[in-house]
């Protein structure tokens, strides 16, 4: 059976976004993908926990898609985690609803790949900065897959953005259609390498 993919999308100013707008549009065309625009659905952060949990159980692959804000996700995604990943649902003795699902981040960052290095401006790699997400996935028994990262997001030309969007599309189609080897996936540094 094909994998169903849930994209939990968080961008507080999508109207000004170049990259994520295109990415979201591209994702919407892929079969088996559910795009869930959190800021549009919950403008006052009043997240419908039951509905979110039900959606999670209906999908095999969970993606968080967002621009990197202060080395983490925009606020609503944190609120989402605080509320939806409940004890007894996502973790704890009876909390096994997410066990075995694949989890990955799809992020854009203003800085270059070189800036996210021990000797770069940001001192830590993206993989290091995303550790809280990695451990959250671990605690929920999910398989943490390396992130799909778009570096230099503010300086991309329209052609580069289009190229990235189509890579993203390919990635989603592959995730949807194929039985991927989990060890092979987790060995990657960035998910981008799967396409390249």
């Amino acid at each position: 059976m094909n994998n169903r993919i849930l994209i939990l999308f968080a961008h507080p100013a999508l109207e000004r976004s170049r990259v994520h707008y295109r990415l979201l549009k591209a994702a919407q065309t892929v079969e088996g993908v559910t795009c869930h625009d959190l800021y549009q659905l919950y403008p006052d952060f009043l997240i419908n926990v039951d509905r979110e949990q039900e959606l999670l159980t209906q999908h095999e692959i969970i993606l968080f898609q967002y621009p990197l804000y202060w080395y983490s996700s925009p606020a609503i995604l944190k609120e989402w985690q605080d509320l939806v990943l409940e004890y007894g649902f996502a973790y704890g003795q009876q909390g096994s609803a997410l066990r075995g699902k694949l989890f990955a981040n799809v992020i854009s960052a203003g800085g270059s790949r070189a800036a996210y290095q021990a000797d770069g401006e940001n001192h830590f790699t993206i993989r290091e900065l995303l550790r809280p997400f990695e451990q959250t996935a671990n605690l929920c028994g999910m398989i943490y897959v390396p992130p799909f990262v778009i570096h230099d997001a503010n300086d991309l030309s329209q052609a580069e953005i289009d190229a990235t969007a189509s890579e993203y599309q390919q990635l989603l189609s592959q995730l949807h259609a194929q039985h991927l080897s989990v060890p092979a996936l987790t060995r990657l540094h960035y998910l981008n390498e799967l396409i390249a």
Partner: peptide, 20 residues
Amino acid sequence: INRDQQEQDNAWNAEERTQR
């Protein structure tokens, strides 16, 4: 947000985590 606060807090103790 305040449901079963007690139970949730318990869930974070090291013992339970290592169990899972």
